[in-house]
Computed example of a mutant assay.
Amino acid sequence: MSIDWDPYDPTLTEPTVWDVYTAARAAGPVARSGRRGGFWVLTGYDDVRAALRDPGTFSSASGHRIPTDGTQHSIPIDFDPPLHTAYRRLMGPALSTTRVRQMRPFLERTIADLVAGFAARGGGDFVREVALPLPLAVLTELVGFSPGTVERFREVTEQTWSGLTAGGEEVDFAGAFRRISELMAGELAAHRADGADDFVSTLLAADLGEDERISILATFAVAGHETTMNAASTLVALLLEDPARQERLRADPSLAPGFVEEMLRHRSPAQNFARRATCPVTVAGQRVEEGDAVLLSFAAANRDPARFPDPDRFDPDRDVRGHLGFGWGIHLCPGAALARAELTILLTELCARPPLRLRGEVGWSGLQGGNHLGPTTLPVVFGE
């Protein structure tokens, strides 16, 4: 079955994007889009998870974004083992559960200060004043980015997404990511000069090429702030949609982890990742040829009614074990533990304040880079 789906279509936003996933699922668990060079779309939960567990058949080495033309080199996601394994091992200590436990006092202080300042001002745009500064502060502590570099993250990332959507069917990945690469190169040069002892200095000491170091830092910079910013803002948007959710959470803050997990399933801040078939394979009765591009839709799979009954309903009491909000298999998000900690602490801190109320319209992004979705503006106030 064919569908007309372009991951970079600017109309793919809240709430229309969910209609597109529903239509794709209705076309069959494996559908074909002729856009961006042509690709298969997998929307069923079991099929997406099976593909994620089989990197030998569904390779990441040609790129995790459509089109999979081999020009993408983001570390570690655009690599297969053994290189992927080596890169993950290098990045692992910065994102391990032990490191997250060590950072918890910092996270609690940082989040408390952000929320206190936001409340003292009476509220404002939650995205710009809380959801964005939070991961930027965490990246400074976690990686060792300088404040000057961090201040430019959002501007450069937005320029990157604009570069991916510009033009026709062709996508200039190198051009789109040039600014973020230049920013990371400057960060490496600054660390060489001042000799700071942090994760960046670890990269400088490792047996890596300069392009590898730049790519690893770019992954921390983009993925480390984009997904957390979107997830935090989406959580608050969900609380504002239904005051009963907020009241329940305020009455029992221990429910916060369940709210986080259901948000990850229901809204999937990171929604679509591409692969390329290394050999002929049959998925749900459909033959996929060697070399074909395949888009694994985490967002559609997370709303597969065969896995999650009544999937369009936000239900923090449901069993969400196995959701694909952080992916699955060898490419499971390495920052999952850190993100969960940030989001749970944030919800708990917000519950200690007067209820949040919406003041104005919520603005939503399109699928940034064909993948990321979240609020761009979220005007709120505190009050009973």
Rank of each mutant, 00 (worst) to 15 (best):
P253M: 10
A244P: 02
T202K: 13
P243N: 10
V222P: 04
A221W: 03
T202E: 14
T202H: 14
L188S: 10
T227S: 15
E262I: 00
E212Y: 07
L203T: 00
E262F: 03
L249C: 07
L204F: 00
D242K: 05
A256M: 03
E210R: 13
R213P: 01
I214C: 07
I216F: 03
L238R: 14
A232L: 03
A256V: 00
F220A: 04
L255R: 12
H225Q: 06
L238S: 12
A223G: 15
V260W: 08
G195P: 08
A256I: 06
L240N: 09
I214K: 02
F199H: 09
S233F: 04
F220T: 01
A256F: 07
S254D: 15
A196N: 12
R192F: 12
L235H: 07
V260N: 03
L249W: 05
D197N: 12
L204W: 00
A206E: 12
G186D: 03
I216S: 00
Q246V: 06
R245C: 05
E261M: 04
L238W: 04
L240M: 04
D211E: 15
G258N: 11
D252A: 13
D197G: 08
L188E: 12
S254V: 10
P257E: 10
A237M: 04
E226T: 01
E247G: 13
E261K: 09
L240H: 04
D207S: 13
V200G: 08
I216V: 14
M229N: 09
A231L: 09
F259I: 05
T202P: 01
A232R: 07
A190Q: 10
L238F: 09
T219E: 14
T202M: 11
V236P: 05
M263S: 08
A237R: 02
R265K: 03
P243Q: 13
